[in-house]
């Protein structure tokens, strides 16, 4: 009996390279098959295939497991690797003891929201624009390195993070990850990323949002007042700041209606251009 058990275990043992393979599949296709209906469900299921095929030799069970991972799933793909690691550990447990496959789904749905929020803030809102912006001066001089360096650095950094997370997630299992999410350490990392992100957004806004007014007010006695000069006397760079803050305010109050804002920017630019106020 005991002998049989170890044989069973060995035949279904997930190796480190299986887990890495799973990470690569998810990374390769996270957005490729993305649909409005179930977002990343298809790629998450596909990424579990190397694992599930090893765990479930029985066709019925394999089919069940595949369907389990085709339900709605969406998160930020870099940090999402942690969810993969946990899901792999839980599937392995489930294959051994046939215990609680519903727990796998609920832990996935429970983690995908918080990790998406963190990932969007760290990986996309801070890391990506900073990497691009740092090399823009090179590109402006006409050097291809301005494009090639971000192209190499960004995937390399994010893949490194994914690799660490999927293996740690697998080792730690669900409880430790939840503790880590709640813990002080995670809070301090997010705080640091938020501060850097916001500071950089301010710097980038000032550098790259271009808005000045050519308006000139002619006074009765014939003297001219250049409006931009007056604005500069009060606070330089006021108009771009108003633009960023105005849009941010609208997003917070009304919600993420990007197309509506885009249309508003187009109309506003046309009107301002015709009237000659900007």
């Amino acid at each position: 009996m005991r002998n049989e058990d170890t044989v069973m275990e060995r035949s279904s043992a997930i190796t480190k390279s299986d887990i890495t393979k799973s990470m690569w599949i998810y990374w390769l296709g996270a957005e490729l098959s993305n649909s409005y209906e179930r977002l990343q469900s298809l790629i998450f299921c596909a990424s579990m295939i190397p694992i599930l095929k090893k765990l479930y030799k029985d066709k019925e069970k394999l089919s069940e497991a595949l369907k389990r991972h085709l339900i709605f799933f969406n998160t930020e793909g870099t940090l999402g690797a942690a969810i993969q690691g946990i899901a792999i550990a839980m599937e392995e447990e489930n294959a051994r003891k046939d215990s609680g496959s519903s727990a796998i789904t609920s832990i996935k749905t429970g983690l995908m929201g918080p990790l998406a929020g963190m990932g969007d803030a760290i990986i996309w809102a801070a890391l990506m624009p900073i990497i691009i912006a740092v090399f823009i001066p090179l590109a402006k001089q006409g050097s291809p390195l301005g494009g090639l360096l971000p192209l190499i650095l960004y995937p390399a950094i994010t893949l490194g993070i994914s690799y660490m997370l999927i293996h740690n997630g697998y080792q730690l299992g669900k409880i430790s990850i939840l503790n880590m999410l709640k813990g002080n350490r995670m809070k301090s990392i997010i705080f640091t990323a938020n501060v850097i992100g916001l500071f950089m957004m301010g710097a980038l806004s000032a550098s790259y949002v271009k808005l000045t007014t050519p308006m000139v007010v002619v006074m009765a006695e014939g003297s001219k007042i250049v409006v931009q000069d007056i604005l500069n006397m009060i606070v330089p760079g006021l108009l771009p700041l108003v633009a960023v803050y105005g849009i941010y305010w609208y997003l917070t109050k009304r919600g993420p209606y990007y197309s509506r804002i885009l249309a508003a920017v187009v109309v506003f630019s046309l009107v301002a251009s015709i009237l000659g106020i900007l």
Binding site: D120, V209, L211, P256
Partner: peptide
């Protein structure tokens, strides 16, 4: 003008995120 203002939308979204 659009070219000058559009980055503002991008940065605003990022701040919101």
């Amino acid at each position: 003008l659009m070219g000058g203002i559009l980055p503002a939308l991008g940065f605003a979204i990022t701040i919101k995120v």
